[in-house]
Simulated assay, not measured.
Amino acid sequence: MTTPKFAQIKQFIVDKIRSATWQENQRVPSENELASQFSVSRMTARRALSELTEAGILTRSQGLGTFVATFKSQSSLLEIKNIADEVKERNGNYTCNVLILESINAVAPIAIALGVEIDSVVYRSVLVHNENDSPLQLEERFVNPALASGYLQQDFTALTPHEYLSSVAPLTQARHTVEAIMPNSEMCQWLNLYNEEPCLQVIRRTWSIHGIVSFARLVSPGSKYRLGGHLTFKK
């Protein structure tokens, strides 16, 4: 099957960035230039640039052109996205290391966060999400067994906790808190941080129609990750 022209253009741009031929913040060819180079319509070239912009690989500036984005990964604070999908949208290779998968008795803060009784059994997982074999995010998650009874039986190298929980307890609501932190020694070890650096921590609780599903702490090195979003206001 012949690869569509817009996909060929996307691969061409990604290859230039991966090989470091094009550096971050460097201007890339315009729609007209790409259309001429690949003998396609301007609309086809625009589609390629638009899809790479939406994936965070490129950034567009009105009147100036299209540029290679900075190499920090970006997640939206306005929606819950599956981290594996985020990595794949950037044409990265996603992998996961499962560090801990266990049942524990909920201490008071965890019990309150999940809306369960103190000392009741809850599930805990600790994972490291990787992009191109480099640690991108540490995820510690506590799960309500009543809403996800098969959690500990899942292979989280094959699917993410977000994917599993979305299938058994579809998300209806989420709340975030975001702050900058200095990682402790354990976090540094898990994230392969040899030089201590500030990290971005997101605390997130998610609900389904039946109650609180999970309470998670997501920690990412500040040099690799950022949060962003786009709002459109109706007049």
Rank of each mutant, 00 (worst) to 15 (best):
Gly150Arg: 01
Gln173Glu: 09
Ser166Lys: 08
Asn144Met: 03
Asn195Thr: 14
Ala180Asp: 01
Ser103His: 12
Asn192Gln: 15
Ser19Gln: 12
Ser19Glu: 10
Phe12Met: 06
Glu186Thr: 14
Tyr194Pro: 00
Ser149Asp: 06
Pro221Gln: 01
Leu78Val: 04
Asn105Ile: 00
Glu31Met: 14
Glu24Tyr: 05
Glu102Arg: 13
Val213His: 06
Glu131Phe: 04
Asn195Ala: 13
Lys16Thr: 01
Gly150Lys: 06
Leu78Ala: 14
Glu163His: 01
Ser149Lys: 13
Leu58Asn: 05
Ser36Pro: 03
Ala7Arg: 15
Leu200Ser: 02
Arg226Asn: 11
Arg217Lys: 12
Ser214Cys: 12
Val40Thr: 15
Lys234Trp: 12
Thr95Glu: 12
Thr70Val: 05
Pro29Asp: 09
Pro109Met: 14
Ser223Tyr: 06
Thr95Asn: 09
Asn25Val: 05
Ile9Asn: 08
Gly63Phe: 08
Gln201Ala: 07
Ala69Thr: 00
Arg204Phe: 03
Gln137Tyr: 00
Pro183Asn: 11
Leu159Arg: 08
Ser36Met: 12
Gly211Met: 09
Leu77Pro: 00
Gln26Val: 01
Leu101Met: 13
Asn184Trp: 10
Gly150Leu: 02
Leu77Ala: 11
Val68Met: 03
Lys5Val: 13
Glu197Tyr: 10
Trp207Met: 07
Val98Met: 13
Ala35Arg: 10
Glu179Pro: 01
Arg42Met: 15
Glu163Pro: 02
Leu191Pro: 07
Glu197Trp: 10
Ser73Cys: 04
Asn25Phe: 11
Asp119Pro: 01
Gln153Thr: 14
Ile181Ala: 10
Gln23Cys: 08
Pro183Arg: 10
Thr21Trp: 03
Phe71Gln: 12
Glu86Trp: 01
Ser73Arg: 10
Thr95Val: 04
Lys224Asn: 05
Val28Ser: 05
His162Phe: 12
Ser30Asp: 02
Thr53Phe: 03
Ile80Gly: 00
Asn144Ser: 11
Thr160Ala: 11
Leu218Ile: 07
Trp22Pro: 04
Asp133Cys: 01
Gly115Lys: 11
Arg46Trp: 11
Ser30Gln: 04
Arg175Ser: 11
Glu31Trp: 04
Thr232Ile: 14
Leu49Gly: 05
Lys10Tyr: 01
Ile209Pro: 00
Trp190Gly: 01
Ser75Asn: 06
Arg204Cys: 05
Ala216Val: 11
Ser36Asn: 15
Leu64Lys: 14
Leu152Ala: 07
